[in-house]
């Protein structure tokens, strides 16, 4: 009986249903990110080395993003920087999500635990984000570890709030009461009834924190509190280029900045489309 059908197909994607199109979009964006990550790992280190013969060259076929004041290829540097950013972002959002899972489930354990979690969320929200990242990063001795942990430990608040609200809503459901009446423990209910409902939230939350993490990493590094200057991070590239902008070397800031934006948008597109698939009200369109 099952017939594959197409609805409202438009343009080049005609013949695919909405879910197929969404998945296609997600795959394309993921592919883009994977390519950036992979090429940053396998990039030829010689192209990152200084070459004073070709200093401050404008974008050309040989150097698509131009070169800097030490003759380094900006395309290679940008790619490496983006790779680093994606890794930092992934680690940081994984840490954030983990913290929200733990705190979210903790909040369902009882009234005292719930108050504690809300208090913790409020506490973290009352300190300016960037300041906290810088403090943690410096406290941990800076570098990649400092930034990852700094960003990770500051981005769990909003997701924890979402998770906590979701758990509160699930806890009022009849089937939870029934489960209690069957003598099931809070921990059993949290694991079997509540957790399955939260998996999509976690997945989505992790992806949506990702762009934040990347941007914060870049800003902290830009301000000089993040990754060390010899690492080709986007933040470093941007802050260095500041000094040369007045001299008319616009490509030093433009291309790395643009690439960062594209990566962030790509992650955002993935998150939004995943959200569409997981939203039960839109699930069957």
């Amino acid at each position: 009986m099952s017939t594959s059908v197409a609805l409202n197909g438009k343009g080049m994607l005609r013949g695919l249903n909405l879910r197929q199109r969404t998945i296609l979009l997600i795959s394309l964006m993921s592919l883009l990110l994977m390519t950036v990550l992979a090429s940053s790992l396998y990039i030829d280190s010689s192209s990152l080395s200084t070459n004073f013969d070709s200093r401050n060259l404008a974008p050309s076929l040989e150097h698509p993003f131009g070169t800097d004041w030490m003759g380094r290829d900006m395309f290679a540097r940008t790619l490496t920087g983006l790779g680093l950013s994606i890794m930092v972002g992934a680690f940081a959002s994984a840490i954030s999500t983990f913290v929200s899972v733990v705190l979210g489930l903790l909040s369902s354990m009882g009234r005292a635990a719930d108050s504690f979690v809300s208090w913790l969320v409020d506490l973290f929200l009352s300190i300016p984000h960037l300041l906290l990242i810088i403090l943690i990063s410096i406290g941990l001795g800076g570098g990649a570890t400092g930034v990852i942990i700094g960003v990770g430990l500051t981005h769990w608040t909003s997701l924890t709030r979402v998770v906590r609200a979701e758990i509160k809503q699930i806890n009022t459901q009849d089937y939870i009461h029934i489960s209690r009446n069957f003598g099931k423990s809070n921990w059993w209910i949290a694991r079997k009834h509540i957790l399955p409902h939260l998996v999509p939230q976690f997945l989505l939350g992790m992806i949506l924190v990702f762009p934040h993490a990347i941007l914060h990493e870049a800003s902290v590094t830009f301000l000089g509190f993040g990754l060390s200057p010899h690492e080709p991070a986007i933040g470093i590239i941007l802050s260095e280029s500041m000094r040369y902008l007045a001299a008319g070397y616009w490509w030093l800031a433009f291309f790395p900045g643009m690439s960062l934006l594209i990566v962030v948008l790509a992650v955002d597109v993935i998150g939004e489309n995943l959200g569409k698939i997981m939203d039960p009200r839109k699930a069957h369109e």
């Binding site: 459901q173 009849d174 089937y175 029934i178 009834h193 399955p196």
Partner: peptide, 13 residues
């Protein structure tokens, strides 16, 4: 206790 709306009394997942 059994309720009027059984669809609310079961975990949809």
């Amino acid at each position: 206790l059994i309720f009027q709306h059984p669809e609310k009394a079961v975990n949809p997942r």
